[in-house]
Design a protein around this nucleic acid. Structure first.
Lengths: 338, 338
DNA sequence: ACCGATTCCGCAACCGGTTGCGGTTGATAA
DNA sequence: TTATCAACCGCAACCGGTTGCGGAATCGGT
């Protein structure tokens, strides 16, 4: 219709011979406006396809109806599903997302928080990058009065809401499942041993073994960050005098390496060796046989984190909601590899 | 620092005893301002961490420094890489992205265009959903004077820039590679035969065969939208009296089904059967053996589409740039499956 | 000493909505 | 008839920057 000149409230006012304020109030059912003018305004408004300018509303109300999201990288399967979880909640409330990537770099993360602040976001969801040590940029956000919720990879030393996977529970579940299948020589392949997820998943693994009085052997614990490393470690594992009858791998990458070695040795899955992963569904379905796995629950994390964030945003009382750490339970999907 | 009350230009003005306008001009090196006041303003500004309010700038200038992006779904590998390509260009120009998903639904797409318009985006990039027949919502955007570029899945019957993969060229490249490896009984597995990408990739396939005088057999053309379908079709293919010595699969899903059947029959890859895909890199690396494949070039598409969009956005001359359709060449990555 | 040109800065309007407050009607009650 | 009050609407300021224009002060030239 109009070229470059969007319809404003003033246009409607002029056409109807009333003031801007009347139009504004009529559109939002203010009691001061008579039903006749209200209907006239409304019907004219949508006959000429009037859409209120979010920017003006944002400036006046100091509310942008936008929430910021900082993730390490969008190129994966986990974060897109987190995004979907967040989006489902945000759109419900009429909010949009401003998604920024840190690419695992501290500098980008700092820059991203500045962009979000300059854009008046009403809340921030963040998964901290691996390189981040200093948390001042996040404190800066919080001190500006903007609610924050961290998810998945959360920082320590900051008082804020956190939403993350219960890695202990997930690993426990996976291990228990293997035990239930009669496996007794259970190996585990972790990634970088220093990462918290490795520590926690190993912890759940050992808890399950302990509960069923199954011994933990040091030589059944391998680690590898790349598929290649995992494959060669698996090779050593399978060359042991008494090789394991099952392997639990804590990530997509490690499982991919393990699978390759298992293929090469033409081992029967799950009879000779059972496999359980902690992998994205797409990958599980691509393996042959399809992989039994703990689901990373990205959508759920995003959903819960966003819900938590909106509780803060919509909290009008003076007393702030106390920070909480919410653990998301994982579920086990049983497929052909066990 | 400040709780909920971000620093404005007025604060700086008050602190320095000058007017808002002076501060504004000083910050952007306006020649009317003396170097002393300019320096005073600037140093004060960054000592109290002043960041200009994008929303106010956006309202006044009618420029949001945001470009809108409509994609079918973020949960995949292709679109995230497109997003990265777009982002790399957008951030270069200081622009942010407002990403919306259609989830392949026409209604969502219409809603998304309205959101983008209400948010004063300066340009829109879109990949149309499968369900979309009516294009009025896109015409609406264009008629509002907002530049648009379509990518990957582009509509017909609308005069606009388009950026998409050269499917013919990609398929040609893949097929030629198989021929170069001495393969002569080459099969192709397409997805939904009605989709344009299937038609074009088949076209490139046949062109390559024709160029090397290799006959095209109807029974070597199979189709399957799901991995299961592809697997069962592959099974029939391999049961032929003279089965093919190679297969070109045009998508991730079909290749996954084919791979499964090849595994089950314990065929030697690439000697007994060579495989070429049109798949995302992650998947190629997960197969065993790793898959030779045409790369979908998501990043490149996003980059080129965004560059094109910014040409329009920054075009101040009255004469509009004429719409163009840009084809992105694919590259072949040779791995172990050929 | 006088006039025109520069230099430097402030006033006020503007972008598009929102909202406190005050004003104008008409009806109703005293 | 007049005071009262509700119903309805407009004025103008505001959110935080930007910018055309005009004005004061200083400078240079004659």
């Amino acid at each position: 219709m109009s070229k470059g000149n969007p319809i404003t409230i003033k246009d409607i006012a002029k056409l109807l011979g009333v003031s801007k304020s009347t139009v504004s109030r009529a559109l939002k059912d203010h009691p001061d406006i008579s039903s006749e003018t209200r209907d006239a305004v409304k019907s004219l408004a949508d006959s000429i396809h009037y859409t209120p300018c979010q920017v003006a509303i944002s400036l006046r109300s100091r509310k942008s109806r936008v929430i910021g999201l900082i993730i390490p990288k969008i190129y994966s399967f986990f974060f897109p599903s987190v995004v979907n979880g967040i989006e489902s909640v945000a759109h419900e409330h009429g909010y949009n997302l401003l998604i920024l990537q840190s690419n695992e770099l501290y500098e980008n993360e700092v820059h991203n928080t500045n962009i979000l602040l300059a854009n008046n976001v009403e809340g921030v969801l963040a998964c901290v990058s691996r390189k981040t040590k200093n948390l001042d940029h996040f404190r800066n956000v919080i001190n500006s009065g903007i609610p924050m919720v961290f998810f998945d990879r959360v920082p320590s030393g900051i008082s804020c809401d956190m939403v993350l996977i219960d890695d202990v529970q997930g690993a426990f579940l996976a291990t228990k499942h293997l035990i239930g299948k009669g496996k007794k020589r259970i190996a585990i392949c972790i990634g970088n041993p220093d990462l918290l997820i490795s520590v926690n998943r190993l912890k759940g693994f050992r808890m399950a073994l302990a509960e069923f009085d199954i011994p933990f052997y040091d030589e059944y614990l391998i680690s590898g960050e790349s598929p290649e490393e995992a494959a060669s470690e698996t090779s050593k594992l399978l060359d042991l005098p008494t090789p394991p009858d099952s392997i639990f791998a804590i990530s997509d990458l490690t499982m991919s390496g393990i699978m390759r070695e298992v293929y090469n040795r033409k081992l029967k899955v799950p009879d000779e060796i059972a496999l359980v992963g902690f992998c994205e569904e797409v990958f599980c379905l691509m393996y042959n046989p399809q992989l039994t796995s703990i689901l990373p629950m990205g959508f759920e994390i995003g959903k819960v984190a966003a819900e938590r964030l909106f509780e803060h945003i919509f909290n009008t009382s003076k007393t702030k909601i106390a920070p909480e750490t919410i653990l998301i339970n994982s579920t086990l999907i049983v497929r052909d590899s066990t």
